[in-house]
Every structure is written in structure tokens, then in C-alpha cells.
Simulated assay, not measured.
Amino acid sequence: MEGSISQRARNAVRRTREDRQPDYTVRARSGRAWAQIGAAWKGREDGNVVVSLKVNAIPVGFDGVIKVMIPLPDNEPPTDEPASE
């Protein structure tokens, strides 16, 4: 095996975190539509609540606005309007 014990442990933790289903989706406006550009996970670090973002892409015409949203069902298109209760 290559690498130190701490390097192997970090790699194992990294794999475990990436294998978890995301708590949120990360979206950015592209023209008039919202494109999914990544994912986010809730967590704790040093006693604080944190949200870790993983951004995979930035759309063409990105206007600088990013939304972190609860994942939508596969058959529901993203919208700017909040869900009705």
C-alpha cells in the first residue's frame, strides 16, 4: 500500500462524503432557466453547522446568482417560485 496512514484515512473519508446523497442541489441562472451546477451537504465542523458545496460547472451567461435548493423530484422542473403549502 502506498501513502501514509493519515493519507489513506483522508481518502477513505473523502470517498464516504462523496458517496452520500446530497442534501441540496446547487443551481445557477442560465438565460431564463436555472441549471443544476452542483450539490451541497449539511455537516458540522468545530461545533458549527456548515454546508459544503461542490460546483461541477458554471453556465454560459452566468449572472453571479447561485441558489442552494432542496432537491426536486425528477419529474418537476425548477422554478423561481416557492413551493405552495
Results as ranks from 00 to 15, higher is better:
1 M>C: 05
3 G>S: 06
4 S>I: 06
4 S>F: 05
4 S>E: 10
4 S>P: 07
5 I>S: 03
6 S>R: 12
7 Q>E: 10
8 R>A: 14
9 A>M: 14
9 A>R: 15
10 R>T: 08
10 R>K: 12
11 N>Q: 14
12 A>P: 01
14 R>H: 03
17 R>A: 13
17 R>F: 08
18 E>F: 10
19 D>I: 05
22 P>N: 09
24 Y>T: 02
25 T>A: 07
26 V>N: 00
29 R>E: 10
29 R>T: 07
30 S>A: 15
30 S>N: 15
31 G>R: 15
34 W>R: 02
35 A>Y: 03
35 A>L: 05
43 G>C: 02
43 G>E: 10
44 R>N: 09
44 R>W: 09
45 E>V: 13
45 E>N: 05
47 G>H: 06
48 N>M: 05
49 V>P: 00
49 V>A: 03
52 S>V: 04
53 L>C: 04
54 K>T: 10
55 V>N: 00
55 V>L: 06
56 N>P: 02
56 N>W: 07
58 I>P: 00
58 I>Y: 00
59 P>A: 13
60 V>A: 12
63 D>C: 03
64 G>W: 11
64 G>A: 15
64 G>D: 10
66 I>S: 03
68 V>L: 14
69 M>N: 11
69 M>T: 14
70 I>S: 09
70 I>A: 02
72 L>E: 14
72 L>Y: 15
75 N>M: 13
75 N>H: 14
76 E>H: 12
76 E>P: 01
76 E>S: 12
77 P>R: 01
78 P>H: 09
79 T>I: 01
79 T>P: 02
81 E>P: 01
82 P>C: 05
84 S>T: 10
85 E>P: 06
